[in-house]
C-alpha cells in the first residue's frame, strides 16, 4: 500500500530538473554572497585604513641616482618633528628594514634584499579618525620642512577603491536578487509542467472532494523537500570551493582582502539553501492555487 501522503504523485512528479536547478542556484548564490561578504569585510578594513593612517616617503636617492647619505636622517628627523606637532596626528614611526621587507613580500617575494634597492624611507602616521589633520596644509608644511618628501595620499586611491568595492557590493546584491527571481520563474514553470502532466490526477482528486488548499499544500511541501535536497547538494559543493578561493586570495592579496568570514556571515550563508527551498515552497503554493482555479 502506498503512503497516505503520496497518492497525488506519480513517477513524473519528481521533476529531475528541480533539485539540480536548486543545487546550481544555491551553489552560485553561496559563492557570490561569500565573495560579497569578503569584499564587505575588506571594505571595512580599508575604510578604517583610510580614516586612521597616512604615509610619508623620504627619498634615499636624488634625481641623478646618487645616495643622499646622512641627509636622509636629517629629513626624517624634521618630518617626524613636524608630524608629531600636527593636530590630529596621534603618532609617527619610521618603518625599519624588516617591516619594509614584509611590505614588499607580495611584490618581490621573501628572498629580495631590500637594502640593495632604491626604496624610500617610509614614515607610518597614525591619525585621529574623529579629528583628522588638514591634508592640504600638512602637505604644504611638509614640503617646506622637508623638500622632496611625499605625503602618500593612499587615502585618495583607497577612497576610490572603497567606492569601487561599494559598487561591486551593489552589483552582487542585484545578481543575488536576479538569481532568486530565476529560481521563482523556474519553479513556476516546472510546477506548471508537473501539474499539466498530472492533470488527470488533479481532476480526479478534485472531483472526489479534495480542497484546493489540501492539494496546494501537498505540492508545496513536495517541491520544498525536493528543492531542499538539491539546495544542500549545491551548498556542500560550494564550501570546498569557497575555502579554495579564500586560500588563493590570501596567498595573492596578503592583508589587502579580508577573505575570512565571521560566524554571523557563515550563519547567513547556511540560510541560503533554506531561502531557496522557502522560495520554492511559496512559488509552488501560488502556482498550484492559481492552476486549480481552472477546475469548477
Amino acid at each position: 500500500m502506498s503512503k497516505k501522503s503520496d497518492f497525488l504523485f506519480n513517477k513524473e512528479s519528481t521533476h529531475f530538473f528541480l533539485p539540480w536547478m536548486c543545487a546550481l542556484m544555491v551553489f552560485m548564490t553561496t559563492l557570490i554572497l561569500a565573495g560579497g561578504m569578503s569584499i564587505h569585510n575588506s571594505l571595512k578594513l580599508w575604510q578604517k585604513g583610510v580614516a586612521e593612517s597616512l604615509t610619508v616617503q623620504i627619498a634615499t636617492y636624488d634625481d641623478d641616482g646618487n645616495s643622499r647619505g646622512e641627509l636622509v636622517y636629517r629629513d626624517i628627523e624634521n618630518a617626524l618633528t613636524l608630524l608629531r606637532t600636527t593636530p590630529g596626528v596621534l603618532g609617527a614611526m619610521v618603518l625599519n628594514d624588516d617591516q619594509m621587507q614584509e611590505l614588499m613580500v607580495p611584490w618581490l617575494g621573501t628572498d629580495a634584499v631590500i637594502s640593495q634597492l632604491p626604496l624610500p624611507k617610509l614614515i607610518d602616521v597614525s591619525v585621529d579618525a574623529s579629528r583628522p589633520p588638514m591634508l592640504e596644509q600638512l602637505k604644504a608644511d611638509l614640503e617646506q620642512a622637508v623638500p622632496g618628501a611625499i605625503l602618500d595620499s593612499h587615502r585618495i586611491w583607497l577612497a576610490d577603491l572603497v567606492h569601487f568595492a561599494s559598487a561591486i557590493l551593489s552589483l552582487i546584491g542585484f545578481i543575488v536578487i536576479l538569481l532568486f527571481i530565476t529560481v521563482a520563474i523556474t519553479v513556476m514553470y516546472t510546477t506548471k509542467s508537473m501539474l499539466s502532466i498530472q492533470e488527470h490526477i488533479l481532476d480526479l482528486v478534485h472531483m472526489l472532494g479534495a480542497k484546493d488548499l489540501y492539494i496546494t499544500n501537498r505540492y508545496a511541501w513536495h517541491n520544498f523537500k525536493t528543492a531542499l535536497s538539491g539546495s544542500f547538494i549545491g551548498f556542500v559543493i560550494a564550501i570546498p570551493i569557497m575555502f579554495g578561493v579564500t586560500m588563493f586570495l590570501k596567498s595573492v592579496s596578503g592583508e589587502l582582502l579580508q577573505s575570512s568570514l565571521s560566524a554571523t556571515q557563515w550563519g547567513l550563508l547556511i540560510l541560503v539553501p533554506f531561502a531557496v527551498a522557502g522560495l520554492t515552497f511559496f512559488t509552488t503554493y501560488k502556482t498550484v492555487l492559481t492552476y486549480l482555479r481552472k477546475f469548477v
Binding site: H206, M207, L208, G209, A210, K211, D212, L213, V296
Partner: peptide
Amino acid sequence: RATKAQFRR
C-alpha cells in the same frame, strides 16, 4: 469552492 469540495465528498 471549499463548500463545493465538501459536497463532492
